[in-house]
């Protein structure tokens, strides 16, 4: 482990597998002082590339670049993130590092700011204070971030293929050129050929979520953000889709940040679970999941799994208290 002063960055072998838990509080303390506090609120402009900060001082920017340059490969790096909606404090002092290629869940009570944190990572909002960088080592100007919404969010006037193609279309990729990518993700998420021309209202809830997933995967994202995507589905379907998400993650190796309020889902999918407190939300605990991959469906029936979910429950209750 390499210690760098004065920022005391802790550099871990994140790219090894399984990924060890990381410590981040010291960084949070220092950067919290370094970065200025300016309320930017929401914006209508896309906020990528990678870094979103509330600082306007160029010196802070250079500090930030230095920190990023010295950091290991991180998908998400949140430092003293604070978010307010008007006077209401939604998130306070959120600090976390999500290594590239890892699967991390955020677990917390309803209304604790999980979705807001995800929206910050997606660039849909800016933090009121603090700094959040996404895919800071990405070689592209606009790092590819996929977002899976709570609802499938499929355009009802577009059929399955056209919905999946949308991100490529918005990037200016021609229809013919995108055909291969669309075919690839359709096969990947288990959609059938006869579904290609169907409109969203002709599909079941599970199929709609598959289309939504395919759309998020079509641009080969480096980071996928899941906002309780299976909350509206029945338990059996949710479990099946969880297994498929894991299969795809192991196959494609994107980084995943998965918001859920379902303890079993968080335990089954992730390498780490960040447990958040009630509003204003902050990270209460960062719990490493002890189960190796690949994870079979039978894992859910083991006493170890039950014991671990019990631990998560206890932590969640502690955080909500």
């Amino acid at each position: 482990m390499l210690q760098v002063t004065p920022w005391r960055l802790s550099i871990h072998p994140y790219n090894s597998f399984p990924i060890p838990a990381c410590s981040f509080e010291p960084i949070a303390d220092d950067l919290g002082k370094v970065l200025a506090t300016e309320d930017l609120g929401t914006t209508t402009e896309p906020l990528h590339p990678a870094t979103r900060t509330s600082s306007s001082d160029p010196l802070d920017y250079f500090h930030l670049l230095f920190v990023i340059a010295m950091s290991p490969s991180l998908a998400i790096h949140a430092t003293s993130v604070e978010l307010r909606y008007g006077k209401e404090l939604v998130l306070r002092n959120v600090n976390c590092q999500i290594p590239s290629g890892s699967f991390v869940s955020i677990l917390g009570p309803s209304g604790c700011g999980k979705t807001s944190l995800l929206r910050l990572a997606a660039g849909l909002q800016r933090p009121t204070n603090g700094q959040l960088s996404v895919l800071s080592d990405s070689s592209t100007r606009h790092p590819q971030v996929g977002f899976i919404f709570q609802d499938p969010t499929l355009l009802p006037w577009r059929n399955v293929v056209d919905n999946i193609r949308l991100p490529l279309e918005l990037s200016g990729v021609a229809k013919k050129a995108s055909a291969l990518d669309v075919d690839r993700v359709i096969a990947m998420v288990g959609l059938h050929n006869e579904d290609r021309k169907k409109f969203p209202h002709m599909l079941s809830g599970g199929m709609q979520m598959r289309v939504s997933l395919a759309r998020a995967l079509v641009k080969q994202p480096e980071l996928l953000l899941f906002d309780e995507p299976f909350a509206a589905l029945d338990d059996l379907l949710r479990q099946r889709l969880n297994e498929e998400i894991l299969r795809l993650w192991q196959q494609e190796k994107w980084s995943a940040w998965f918001v859920t309020h379902n303890v079993n889902e968080a335990a089954f999918l992730s390498q780490r679970v960040l447990v958040m407190t009630d509003r204003p939300g902050t990270v209460h605990a960062d719990i490493k999941v002890p189960f190796p991959y690949p994870r079979r469906p039978e894992l859910r029936a083991t006493p170890e799994f039950a014991e671990f979910t019990g631990r998560l429950h206890a932590s969640l209750q502690e955080a909500a208290a």
Partner: peptide, 10 residues
């Protein structure tokens, strides 16, 4: 959600 989708895709 649609607005966010379009914004995400620049």
């Amino acid at each position: 959600g649609f607005s966010a989708l379009f914004k995400l895709n620049q």
